[in-house]
Design a protein around this nucleic acid. Structure first.
Lengths: 148, 148
DNA sequence: TCAAGTGACTTGCGTGACGCAAGTGACCAT
DNA sequence: ATGGTCACTTGCGTCACGCAAGTCACTTGA
């Protein structure tokens, strides 16, 4: 039997978890928020190839990622978050805030306010300049290659 | 092979998902935030008995729930969120906000500001009186029995 | 008095999700 | 021509989960 589908539940939390609640899925979204684009970028987390492949397929179907060809002969694709995908950032940041408070360990997941360099926390309120930040004004703290 | 443990990862998001990222777990937390306390309350979501039993055990061990005996002969227990558990509310609310925006369906998951009756959204900012709300001032919109 | 119900579980079975390793196919560098 | 890169797929084994039934200590209704 597969996982019970939560898609039909009368609750937006359940329907969200139906799309992103599987093992590894939110970590893939996290990596994308931190700048990952290509298959090998995402693999670095420790996810198995076959699982990554199926997750990217599912997330693309769900409209959370879009697949873009960046090379031909052979065709190679990269995976970019859509608006729908970047809209998951508050959820990811809320999980991060909880983890920072209640678990011990290192932190390689910081996201920074483009305008001032302060760390972005839940609610997209910048810790440094203390103003609300539109989602177009956040960027990864750890850059991995060419970024806008 | 079991799920890979995310507990050792240098990322608070991974460590959080190690504790609450399994199938059904965040829905159990959601139900608790909405007032569920007893085994049968949580079962109503559609989770299987054995899975619910093991999740409650794990979450209790993790300090997210505490078990309280509410009856003897036979002993019966209820499961209450600790402070560590209620601190997951922003994450759950962020998932809810995303689901409301990007999925279609009913919504039985509203949480209300005790002070004014406004719906609580991400960041614990009350939509009605527009002030920040301490976590002691939220309560379920749907009450199921005696509540403080 | 005795069957039926309640509530919190556990146990057993079957399927499939996931971890791991290896294979593939088109290129490129040495 | 031998090895490396990259984005995958395939195969195998184990364990997680869905489902159904059983358990145990009561309580309730007839």
């Amino acid at each position: 039997m597969p996982h019970a589908s939560l898609a039909a539940q009368p609750c937006p939390i359940a329907r969200t978890l139906d799309l992103v609640g599987e093992w590894w899925t939110l970590l893939i979204v996290r990596d994308a928020l931190l700048g990952a684009r290509r298959f090998d970028d995402f693999k670095a987390t420790g996810i198995a190839d076959n699982v990554l492949s199926s997750r990217l397929k599912k997330l693309t179907t769900a409209g959370i990622f879009k697949r873009r060809r960046y090379q031909t002969h052979p065709d190679r694709y990269e995976y970019l978050l859509t608006d729908k995908g970047t809209a998951l950032a508050p959820a990811v940041l809320a999980l991060r805030a909880w983890g920072k408070r209640f678990t011990k360990g290192a932190d390689t997941s910081q996201i920074i306010h483009k305008g001032c360099g302060g760390a972005v926390e839940v609610g997209f309120r910048c810790g440094q300049c203390d103003r609300e930040i539109p989602k177009t004004e956040i960027r990864p703290a750890r850059l991995s290659g060419a970024e806008a």
